[in-house]
Simulated scan of single mutants.
Amino acid sequence: MSKLLMNLRHVPEDESDDVRGLLDAHRIEYYETRPSRWGISSGGIWISDDADLAEAKRLMAEYQARRQSQARAEYEAARRDGTAETFWTILRNEPARVLLTGVAILLLLGLVALPVILLSR
């Protein structure tokens, strides 16, 4: 019976391509389901043979560890160079987005607090 190796929701295309290449390189049979048209299911990469599942999970763990260390190194390099995105750079570059997000947060907090305020009277 097939087992899900990787859910493709919010997965960048380069990461899913890397995983496909990794499985192909190790001759692990898999198939892929595509996301549904309306976003109900996100698609995934499935391992066809249960015997290959342990090896596929081991390879995925190694790949994810490498990807994580690479991403952290890139972020640290960007921080040292001063090119890493911070709240202040976002505020400077997109003030309307930050303002609208703040207003939305305040409205949602007000909605959450409204029952408490109404019940306390």
Rank of each mutant, 00 (worst) to 15 (best):
R20E: 13
Q68V: 12
S41N: 13
P115N: 00
R97T: 14
K57C: 05
T83L: 03
K57W: 05
E13V: 14
I40G: 08
E55M: 13
N93L: 13
A65H: 09
G110P: 07
S48M: 15
A71C: 12
R9Q: 07
P35C: 03
T101A: 09
L4R: 03
E55I: 09
Y30T: 03
R67L: 14
F87M: 05
A73F: 04
L111G: 02
G102N: 06
D17K: 06
S2D: 07
L23R: 02
T83E: 01
T89P: 01
S16L: 10
R27A: 12
D18P: 04
E29G: 13
I28E: 02
A71H: 15
D81Q: 15
R66E: 04
E94K: 09
I28W: 07
L109A: 08
A71T: 13
L22G: 07
T86E: 03
M1E: 13
L100N: 07
L119T: 12
S41R: 12
R27M: 07
E74L: 14
G21Y: 04
Q68H: 11
Q64C: 01
I45F: 00
V11E: 14
L99S: 06
L8Y: 03
P35N: 03
V112T: 08
D49R: 15
I45S: 01
I105D: 01
V116M: 11
G21S: 11
I28L: 03
A54N: 09
T86W: 02
A73R: 10
L119M: 11
L119A: 14
W88R: 06
D52A: 14
E85L: 12
E13T: 12
M60T: 05
T101R: 01
V116Q: 13
A61Q: 06
D50F: 03
A25N: 13
T83F: 02
A54D: 12
H10F: 12
R66M: 01
V98G: 01
I47P: 00
L119W: 10
R67V: 11
R67D: 15
T101Q: 02
L91P: 01
L107A: 09
S69N: 09
P95C: 06
Y75D: 15
R72V: 11
R27H: 08
S36R: 07
P95A: 07
F87S: 09
M6W: 02
Y63H: 12
I28D: 00
L119E: 14
A73I: 05
I45R: 00
L107H: 03
R72P: 04
A77I: 10
L118Y: 04
D14K: 13
F87G: 08
E13H: 10
L106A: 10
I40A: 11
Y30E: 05
L59E: 01
G82Q: 00
W38R: 13
D50R: 00
R79E: 11
L114Y: 12
G43S: 14
A104M: 13
S41W: 13
E32P: 00
I28N: 02
V112S: 05
L53K: 08
L99V: 07
H10C: 10
D17E: 15
W88D: 11
A96I: 10
R92W: 12
R58Y: 08
E62C: 07
A84K: 12
R79P: 00
D81K: 15
M60R: 01
M6Y: 02
D52T: 08
Y30S: 04
